[in-house]
Each structure stands twice: as structure tokens, then as C-alpha cells.
């Protein structure tokens, strides 16, 4: 069978893909999508530890549900902020939004 370390490695790779997306891309929407990738990596780690190590409880799955609920709240508020920015600046690229620098 697949050992626990494979699942944790997959979760690590997924997390760093999301972190790279936040650091490299300049479109705010794709940066938010990368944050979703990182949340899913944490979900995978929680679920894998629940299945392999603490299989007498369902705590990891419960926490994954809470992470999904928090992701929904984060997406709703974040996209509302992006709409407000787009209405004011007519762009979603972060290099055009550096108002704090000047």
C-alpha cells in the first residue's frame, strides 16, 4: 500500500506550487487561485494523518470541512475586493496597483 510519507510529499509539492504561483504571477485572480491550491494541500495533509495515524476519530475530516468553509468566506470577500479595485483602476494586475509606493 501507499505509505503516509507519499501523501505528505504530495501535499508538500502542492503547497509549494501554490506558493510559487503567489510569488511569480501578477494577476490577482490567479494569485487567489494559488491560495486555494495551498489550502487544498493543507486539507490533504490533515486527511492523510487522520486516515493513517488517528483512524479512530474523524477530526482531520472535520477540520477539512472547516477549511473549505473558510475558503468560501475568503473567496467571497477577496473577489469583492478585486471587483472594487477593478471598478476604480480598470485593471487586475498588481504592478498597476502600487498606490502605497508613491
Amino acid at each position: 500500500m501507499v505509505p503516509l510519507s507519499s501523501y505528505i510529499m504530495l501535499s508538500t509539492i502542492l503547497f509549494f506550487i501554490g506558493l510559487t504561483g503567489v510569488l511569480v504571477r501578477r494577476n490577482i485572480i490567479i494569485m487567489m487561485v494559488s491560495i486555494e491550491i495551498m489550502l487544498n494541500a493543507s486539507n490533504l495533509a490533515l486527511v492523510a494523518f487522520n486516515r493513517f495515524r488517528f483512524y479512530n476519530s474523524n477530526d482531520g475530516m472535520i477540520f477539512s470541512f472547516l477549511v473549505i468553509a473558510i475558503a468560501a468566506a475568503e473567496v467571497a470577500v477577496g473577489l469583492a475586493i478585486v471587483i472594487a479595485i477593478y471598478r476604480k483602476k480598470k485593471t487586475v494586475m498588481i504592478q498597476d496597483l502600487s498606490v502605497m509606493k508613491h
Binding site: 500500500m1 501507499v2 505509505p3 503516509l4 510519507s5 505528505i8 510529499m9 508538500t12 509539492i13 509549494f16 506558493l19 510559487t20 510569488l23 511569480v24 486516515r51 493513517f52 495515524r53
Partner: peptide, 30 residues
């Protein structure tokens, strides 16, 4: 942008090597 990319690859491979060497994680099977 190559700088964060290389940094992320180095850090991720460090984490993966640490997870692969850990006996505590490897011993758990389904």
C-alpha cells in the same frame, strides 16, 4: 522571477528529503 522559483524548488526539495528520511512517518501504513 527566476529567484523565487529557484528558492521554492530548493525549499520544497529540502522538505521532501526530510519527509523521505523520516522513519516516524514511513512506518505508518493503511
Amino acid at each position: 522571477d527566476i529567484i523565487p522559483l529557484i528558492l521554492m524548488i530548493i525549499t520544497a526539495s529540502g522538505f521532501i528529503a526530510a519527509i523521505g528520511r523520516s522513519e516516524a512517518i514511513k512506518t505508518y501504513v493503511v
